[in-house]
Structure formats: C-alpha cells, structure tokens
Design a protein around this nucleic acid. Structure first.
Length: 325
DNA sequence: AATCTATCCAACCGCTTTTAA
DNA sequence: GTTAAAAGCGGTTGGATAGAT
C-alpha cells in the first residue's frame, strides 16, 4: 500500500490556497519568522502541513519574488545554466534573483523546451536533434561560431566524458558571460554517434567561445544583464577582474561594473550565497589560465575549450577543478 | 453557445540530504 | 555512531484558463 503524504495522514487541507490562508501565513511569518516549518501551521492557525506552508511561502508569498514573465536575458541564462547543470533547478534559480526553482522548472518545461526543439536542439542534451539520413558535410565549413554544441561534437575527446555533473557553482562569474543564444540547427549532419554525451563541461567550451567572441567584437551587441541581478553583476565584475589576462580586453557590458552594482541596491542577505560562490569563478579562472598556458600541449586529457583563433581547440585538464573544494 | 484541446503553473509526492538529539 | 525529524529538491499531477472547432 502506498505511503500517504503528511497532509493525508493528518487530514489537513490540500489544494489551492485561499487568500485568507495566504494572509494568515504572511502575517505569521512577518511577525515571528517561519522558524521550524512543521510548527508554522499550528502557530499560524492553518490546517496545512508545514511542508505545504513552506512551499507556498517560497514559491508565492515571499516578498522578494520577481513574478511576471522571464526576460530574454533570464531565458538565455536558464538555457545556458541548464546546459551546464542539467535539471538542477534550485541551482539555476539561485542565479536568477527573484525566481524560484519551481518557476524556472515550469518555464523550462512549458516554454524553453519547445523553443529549443523548434531550433533543432535537443533540450535534454543541448545537442542538435538527430536527423535521419543526413549526408555528412565538411566538418567545419557551415557551422558558425555560434554553433557551439555542434562544434563541440567535432572535437574528439581522448578520455571518457565524466558522467557525473560537475558539482559546485562551476562557472559562477564565467557562466554569466553574455552569450549569443542563436543556436544552431543540425544542418550539417553531425554524426549522431557523438551527440549523446553529457555536456556539462561542453558548456565550458561554450563560455570560452563566447568570451573569445567578445574579445573579437564579432557580435553586434552585448546582452546586458538585468540591473536587479545583483549576484549576476557582481559575479560578472569578478569574472572581468579575473579574465583580463585571458581575453586581453574587457567585456563591454562589464563597464557597468561597480557603479551598476551599487545602483542595484543593498547587498541583500538572499544573495550572500551567490557571493560566496564567487570563489569558484576565481578558481575556475586560475584553472583556465593554467590550461591556456599549456595550449597546444597534446598531453591534455580533459575537455575542450574553444579559446584560440581559427577554431583551434584549446584543452585543459578539468581534473584539477574537481579536486578543488 | 457549447465542447474540445492545449497550455500554464501551483501544488503535491516521494526521495535524498542535512541537522539535531 | 545511530536515528528521527526537518528541510530541500526534482518529477509529476491536476485544475484553471485560453483558444480552436
């Protein structure tokens, strides 16, 4: 017999919340904080389980929620982070101030997945969707530099791709680089055998590519992050600081820099975690610099990074990354 | 106007992880 | 070190709504 939820056991109310319930919960939390969630419903006079109260607060009542439709920048960031992290909705949402994991997840399932499929991208793998009986095309001729994931597939790897997601806020700072999301369609018939790899680190390739593109000023305009995104801005500023040696230049939108961050308002405690994660970008950056210095060294064993001119892949050893914690 | 279908999203379920005793 | 409770997370469901027929 299937286990029943706590709400069933206690014959508590379920389903949609009424305005009165919302008010009770809000008043209670405003007055006392939530403390232990399991005691909240009793103290607030609600016939709900604590879990339900917590969810309602986090996903709907919290005052710092942004609500409303997602901006293009948010959408791009979600896609990009998903390519790195997979269905780690809470971690993706953590990079989007005012958004909840549930909201991001719903947005992904209802909108982004569809959009990616329309563009010929498999939302699960971020690879071009396999197309039957497509004649192979010359390897690098028709794929634009935007065609990031398609490109990646052209690079043979010498070691198995790590199946496990790369833990930690991998590229905080770096992942938030402006990325042109005009993604490729599998028009050149990339062999499907190479399409099924997990792409956590392939996403890193993506970033470096974007970085390089910015250095070359080859795309028309930067994607400027929302001014409300304090963590994003600070991470970007950090990345800017660290990446000067890599790119040899600056990222235009980062000229917003500290003043934009200051304008964004006070350092809310809810962003403290994001700030903590900045050390990852510092580490990632140093790892990348070390790798860049080894560019051309054939003994590299990790994932590829597009960093050089003429689409020459740069490799670096990600094992160093995974060993750092 | 009535019915059907598709979409969106709030909420639930159950599992895992973390924390406290 | 063990156990139970709490919290967190991701997958899934179901109701409300809009649009199509």
């Amino acid at each position: 017999m299937a286990k029943q939820s706590c709400c069933h056991k206690k014959k508590l109310r379920r389903g949609l919340w009424s305005p009165e319930e919302d008010e009770k919960l809000m008043n209670h939390i405003a007055q006392y904080g939530h403390g232990c969630w399991s005691s909240v419903p009793k103290l607030a006079g609600l016939e709900r389980c604590g879990k339900s109260c917590r969810l309602r607060w986090i996903n709907y009542l919290r005052p710092d929620l942004k609500r409303g439709t997602f901006s293009q920048e948010e959408e791009d960031l979600i896609i990009h982070l998903h390519s790195l992290l997979g269905n780690k909705w809470s971690r993706i949402a953590a990079q989007l101030p005012g958004r909840t994991d549930n909201e991001v997840k719903n947005f992904w399932n209802s909108y982004i997945k569809k959009r990616l499929r329309e563009r010929g991208i498999d939302p699960a793998t971020h690879q071009p969707l396999a197309e039957p009986a497509v004649a192979p095309a010359p390897a690098t001729t028709t794929v634009s530099r935007r065609a990031v994931f398609g490109d990646v597939d052209l690079i043979p790897t010498t070691t198995p791709i790590q199946a496990a997601p790369f833990e930690g806020p991998i590229l905080d700072g770096v992942t938030k680089l402006p990325v042109d999301m005009d993604w490729p369609v599998a028009e050149d018939g990339v062999p499907s055998s190479s399409l099924s790899r997990p792409c956590y680190l392939q996403g890193a390739c993506f970033d470096m590519d974007a970085l390089q593109q910015h250095h070359c000023s080859s795309i028309p305009g930067p994607v400027v992050p929302s001014a409300s995104s304090y963590s994003t801005l600070t991470s970007m500023a950090e990345a800017e600081h660290c990446n000067t040696n890599i790119t040899g230049g600056s990222l235009p939108w980062l000229e917003l820099g500290a003043s934009a961050v200051a304008d964004a308002g006070h350092v809310d405690s809810c962003y403290a975690g994001a700030l903590d994660e900045l050390r990852w970008s510092e580490y990632f950056d140093s790892a990348f610099q070390a790798a860049a210095s080894q560019q051309g060294a054939l003994q590299a064993t990790g994932q590829c990074v597009y960093g050089g001119k003429d689409d020459v892949p740069v490799h670096f050893d990600v094992h160093g990354l995974s060993n750092w914690c």
